[in-house]
């Protein structure tokens, strides 16, 4: 009984802390077209089952920009988007694995700790242009490949899902 009260209090504290660090405390419902759905172990939901994001919500998060070579192109490309860990924090996602799915039904597993270890972003801009579905849009999981040799391997290339549409947290 007492421990339950304590847990509630701690949770409230955490929420209070998050609330102070992020002005847009509670996740508002998406106003535009939903491009990313985070389901599973998420504490912050704006639909009955998941945290749904439109492009504007993602653009409100702190943005990260870097340029890197990829195996899919002959030229280096400039990517822009929120850090994966900030997106997960917005949905208060907890767990070990992200099951990412793409529009073309591509599926891949990303360990949750990748979001902490590397500056992985959900890119919505390539070379300062919105990414259309007919290339690799609207969202592209991009690792900063040029910063670490270990990132230039099949393991991380497979985790780099493009045309990302949803993430299930387990």
């Amino acid at each position: 009984m007492i421990s339950k009260i304590m847990r509630v209090m701690v949770t409230c504290g955490a929420v209070a802390f998050l609330a102070t660090s992020m002005p847009a405390a509670a996740l508002e419902p998406a106003k535009g077209k939903v491009i990313l759905t985070i389901s599973g172990n998420v504490a912050e939901k704006n639909t009955p089952t998941a945290a749904a994001f439109d492009l504007a919500m993602l653009e409100k998060l702190p943005q990260q920009t870097f340029t890197t070579m990829t195996p899919w192109d002959k030229q280096p490309i400039k990517f822009k988007g929120p850090l994966l860990r900030d997106v997960l924090a917005a949905a208060k996602a907890t767990g070990t694995t992200i099951k990412a799915a793409a529009l073309n039904d591509y599926q891949t597993s990303i360990p949750l700790e990748d979001a902490q270890k590397f500056d992985v972003i959900l890119a919505h801009k390539m070379n300062d242009q919105d990414i259309p579905v007919k290339t690799k849009g609207p969202l592209f999981v991009v690792y900063p490949y040029d910063t670490k040799a270990e990132l230039r391997s099949t393991t991380y290339y497979e985790r780099s899902a493009w045309q990302l549409k949803s993430m299930a947290i387990e």
Binding site: D73, N104, V133, K134
Partner: peptide, 18 residues
Amino acid sequence: SLRYDIFLSRLGLLKDSP
């Protein structure tokens, strides 16, 4: 449109990928 876009993205890769 979505299917078409995805198809296009694949076609792009077939033209540009190393």
